[in-house]
Computed example of a mutant assay.
Amino acid sequence: MPRTTTGATSGSSTERARPVIVELIRSLYRYNDWANGRILDASARLTCEQLLEGGGASFDSVRDTLVHTMGAEWLYLERWHGRSPRASFAAADFPDLATIRARWQTIERDTQAFVAALTEADLARVVEYTNMQGERWAYPLWQQMIHQVNHATQHRSEAAVMLTKLGHSPGWLDLLYFVDLVGGPDMAPHTPQRSSRPGEPRARLDTPQRSSRPGEPGARLDSESK
């Protein structure tokens, strides 16, 4: 009888799938950085008064929303390094967009360095931390990392609404729009057909029916929404 072995072979679907989680996390954090940048760029068109103007979202102003989103990214990165801060950033310490950008650039640099070094074993590791109320919590790292991006998405959406009401929409923030524009090799489609038109998103696989709405993603394969 032929010999049999247990476990995944080198060509098994299980083994081939393992690196996908690491690449998923890296791709999400590249997207997160890009989407945050869109919000910051739109915020740069506000006056100082508009930046602080009450907007009625989870946090009162665009400034306060940005500081909270930035602070949450910093907070989780601290937790992943084994520290449990008992306070986040105070919005009053960031009087203008320049101070927010300067601090966020440092946080983003450290976050991307952390993400770049991740392994599958790292992502499976359970990370314990104490929250600001003194409660102890523990989750696998991969869950916390996805949570952090999802949390940022919520508050980016709130900031986008306030910015749009002030006349400075950040434009499309969808993941697939990011893939079309700047996704990079780890997020690109398998068999893209490049357009000959300058600026055309690269992910078109045929000749899709384009939307008449400005900023509509270019990878639509039919008339349905992403």
Rank of each mutant, 00 (worst) to 15 (best):
residue 1 M to V: 08
residue 7 G to N: 06
residue 9 T to I: 14
residue 11 G to W: 10
residue 13 S to K: 15
residue 14 T to P: 12
residue 15 E to T: 15
residue 17 A to P: 06
residue 17 A to V: 04
residue 24 L to E: 09
residue 31 Y to Q: 02
residue 36 N to F: 01
residue 41 D to L: 00
residue 41 D to K: 00
residue 42 A to N: 12
residue 43 S to D: 10
residue 43 S to Q: 01
residue 49 E to F: 00
residue 52 L to M: 14
residue 55 G to D: 08
residue 55 G to M: 14
residue 58 S to E: 10
residue 58 S to I: 00
residue 62 V to T: 01
residue 65 T to V: 10
residue 76 Y to W: 06
residue 80 W to R: 05
residue 86 R to H: 14
residue 93 D to N: 03
residue 94 F to I: 04
residue 94 F to T: 05
residue 95 P to Q: 08
residue 95 P to H: 01
residue 102 A to S: 03
residue 103 R to I: 05
residue 106 T to S: 08
residue 108 E to I: 09
residue 114 F to M: 08
residue 120 E to Q: 02
residue 122 D to M: 04
residue 124 A to F: 05
residue 127 V to K: 07
residue 130 T to G: 09
residue 131 N to M: 07
residue 131 N to G: 11
residue 131 N to A: 11
residue 131 N to D: 15
residue 134 G to F: 08
residue 137 W to V: 12
residue 138 A to T: 15
residue 138 A to I: 14
residue 139 Y to C: 03
residue 139 Y to Q: 13
residue 139 Y to T: 10
residue 141 L to N: 02
residue 142 W to N: 09
residue 143 Q to R: 07
residue 147 H to F: 15
residue 149 V to Y: 01
residue 152 A to L: 13
residue 155 H to R: 03
residue 156 R to W: 06
residue 156 R to S: 00
residue 157 S to K: 06
residue 158 E to Q: 15
residue 160 A to P: 03
residue 162 M to I: 01
residue 163 L to T: 11
residue 167 G to W: 13
residue 167 G to D: 13
residue 173 L to F: 07
residue 174 D to I: 12
residue 175 L to E: 00
residue 178 F to T: 00
residue 179 V to W: 07
residue 181 L to M: 14
residue 182 V to A: 02
residue 185 P to C: 04
residue 186 D to F: 03
residue 187 M to D: 09
residue 193 Q to N: 01
residue 199 G to A: 07
residue 200 E to M: 02
residue 205 L to C: 12
residue 207 T to Q: 06
residue 207 T to W: 11
residue 211 S to M: 11
residue 211 S to R: 02
residue 215 G to Y: 01
residue 217 P to N: 01
residue 218 G to F: 05
residue 220 R to Q: 10
residue 220 R to V: 03
residue 223 S to D: 12
residue 223 S to E: 01
residue 223 S to Q: 14
residue 224 E to G: 07
residue 224 E to L: 04
residue 225 S to H: 13
residue 226 K to A: 11
